[in-house]
Design a protein around this nucleic acid. Structure first.
Lengths: 134, 134
DNA sequence: CAGTATCCGAACAGATACTG
DNA sequence: CAGTATCTGTTCGGATACTG
């Protein structure tokens, strides 16, 4: 993978925005992270992603499959068995996604502190404005 | 920043999910990317992010400010002037975000090809199923 | 097990009008 | 310039019921 000289600044105007919106949502990030470790079945993914509903997992997996990031293998057995794994393209995303997820994990407290601080200030400001004439 | 041994697997269950959902949306990513280059004013950001509405830019900036990723400086002049810049915390996100945005940019075509392929297969499958008895 | 289908409330996001 | 406020259509996403 070489450097892309003609890129330079962000292509905010082009179709990259739509792509980003697809892959950079919380469920997709977690699916990619988990599949980065190994191939998983539907239920394993569901158990691995706390709080995801069956519907959202299905929707997310279909979108990732459509985008060519995840491949889906159906075994015609009873009970059914479906394996999900990252494609080569999907694997090129893995490092970035892992970094991002790790960042969120490490900076959880800092962000929550910032929020508490912001909320306190906002409330203090509101108290000052309270009952003031227009 | 040292390695975090107790992390190990993904903390999918904890509050990191909510954090990810906040920062990993298309507008936040673009705002962070742009502010990574330099401090910008509201209108400069708006012009730099193609397709964002005034409302969404405001909402996004407020959220990023609340999370302690972006700082907002108001100059009490007329006409008003407000500068937005990344905080130290925000700057720790920059490299990852830049990588992600760059990835989306570079792989636009591959993804669109995958989609076209998927859609073709889906349609072919539907054609086979067409009019079949239950 | 691995889904699909449907319903429905909640959150999101654009358009528009107004303001210090 | 840099917003806020409001209204409204759209999408998201959970709950539930059903299936090969």
């Amino acid at each position: 993978m070489e450097v892309q000289p003609p890129e330079g600044r962000l292509a905010t105007g082009c179709g990259a925005r739509e792509i980003l919106d697809r892959i950079a949502d919380k469920w997709s990030l977690y699916v990619i992270s988990l599949l980065g470790e190994r191939t998983l079945r539907f239920t394993e993914l569901k158990r691995g992603i706390d709080g995801i509903s069956q519907r959202m997992l299905t929707v997310t997996l279909r979108a990732l499959e459509r985008d060519g990031l995840v491949s889906r293998t159906v075994y015609p057995v009873m009970p059914p068995r479906v394996d999900y794994t990252l494609t080569d393209l999907g694997r090129t995303l893995l490092e970035t996604v892992t970094t991002l997820v790790g960042w969120a994990d490490r900076n959880l407290e800092a962000i929550e502190a910032a929020r508490a601080d912001y909320d306190t200030r906002a409330q203090a400001l509101r108290a000052l404005t309270e009952g003031l004439p227009d």
